[in-house]
């Protein structure tokens, strides 16, 4: 029982239940608003009946030619509302928007190689590892990222995925669209 709707700028005043969690970073105003200004339909939020924010996903559309796709920039669920399938609902919506109106070939996301819980979850949603980005995450814990992808209808020949993507290594500069 959650209302899945587009994220509003003023939701930033009410997202503490989600953003106080240590794994969810709070960015500056421009970060959120620049996504809203460009891809308002790829930024969604799940709310309780009393309009408490439980989870949100932000995404963008990018790439050229057959690389044109939806990208999940961030997805996060407040601690109290985990294991309810909220992430799945938001991913479903993001995928369907990536398909229409954006008409993308696939949806992709980056995840820390060590984050087994998340990787398994995305696999359950139909994502597979396309390539490994070496040392993608910088800072205190330098780590590889998996670029995980799920093909959309437009990718008829399923060219946006591959077997054994784990062993396909690329450098961070190669994944900029």
């Amino acid at each position: 029982m959650s209302s899945l709707r587009q994220f509003k700028a003023t939701d930033l005043f009410n997202f503490n239940l989600i953003n106080l969690d240590s794994l969810t970073e709070t960015y500056n105003i421009s970060f959120y608003l620049s996504y809203l200004a460009r891809w308002p339909d790829l930024f969604s939020v799940q709310c309780t009946p009393s309009e408490t924010l439980m989870a949100y996903v932000m995404g963008k559309a990018e790439g050229k030619g057959t690389d044109w796709h939806g990208h999940v920039t961030a997805i996060t669920v407040a601690p109290e509302y985990r294991r309810l399938g909220l992430a799945e609902g938001m991913m479903d919506l993001l995928e369907s928007v990536s398909e229409q109106p954006y008409d993308g070939y696939f949806v992709d996301l980056f995840v820390r190689r060590s984050n087994k819980v998340a990787i398994d979850m995305y696999k359950r949603f139909g994502y597979s590892v396309y390539r490994t980005v070496v040392n993608y995450y910088q800072g205190d814990n330098v780590e590889d990222a998996f670029d995980m992808r799920k093909p959309l209808k437009r990718d008829v020949n399923r060219e946006s995925i591959r077997e054994n993507g784990e062993s396909f290594l690329v450098e961070p500069h190669e994944v900029v669209f």
């Binding site: 700028a9 003023t10 608003l33 809203l36 200004a37 460009r38």
Partner: peptide
Amino acid sequence: MILQAYKYSTFSKIPEFIEF
């Protein structure tokens, strides 16, 4: 950011940004 919304013609967000 309001300018960005004009640039991308994202009209639905402009009143919202102003409210923010």
